[in-house]
């Protein structure tokens, strides 16, 4: 899946439509979801990948939301970039696939995006690994001693 603008191709139409007004619609939805989240605590995800946004639309949306204080990168099954926008609770989540192309892109309304949080199963596994490490470490210390 690509978000590469069609106009980058030599056969692409010369007069590619620029701003379609889609960004306004997305922004309005973000606002509504954020208000809802603030009141009820219901998190939401707005999937941008399949939306017919033009390059200009995306740039506009990104510019409006801006960048806040938190930025996260994840290296798991490829690269991911996540940042909180200048609106608290509104997160931009961008996963990259093969060849640095954007695989999915979404806006999450939550205190933190799901993917940033540690999964209980992961933590249980980590605890087991860590315990094993500790045991291993104490054995080595005793032997050294």
């Amino acid at each position: 899946m690509t978000l590469a603008p069609a106009s980058s191709h030599p056969h692409a139409p010369r007069e590619a439509p620029a701003l379609t007004g889609m960004a306004d619609a997305v922004l309005a939805e973000v606002a509504a979801r954020l208000e809802d989240y603030a009141e009820t605590g219901r998190a939401a995800t707005i999937e941008l990948t399949a939306m017919p946004l033009t390059t200009e639309d995306r740039a506009e949306l990104e510019a409006w939301l801006g960048r806040g204080e938190v930025a996260v990168t994840i290296e798991s099954a490829g690269h991911s970039e996540i940042w909180e926008t200048r609106f608290s609770g509104v997160w931009f989540v961008r996963h990259f696939g093969e060849g640095d192309r954007i695989a999915t892109e979404s806006i999450e309304i939550a205190d933190a995006p799901l993917i940033v949080r540690s999964h209980p199963a992961d933590m249980r596994a980590a605890a087991r690994r860590l315990a094993a490490l500790c045991a291993d470490q104490s054995t080595r210390t005793r032997r050294d001693a």
Binding site: T45, E47, S76, G97, S106, H119, A121, A125
Partner: peptide, 26 residues
């Protein structure tokens, strides 16, 4: 788990597939 890979990989893959298939958000 045994490979030390977190569930984030699942979530990321799942969001990829659900975006592909236009499954409902969530």
């Amino acid at each position: 788990d045994s490979r030390g890979v977190s569930r984030r990989a699942f979530l990321k893959y799942a969001s990829y597939v659900s975006a592909l298939m236009a499954l409902p958000a969530g």
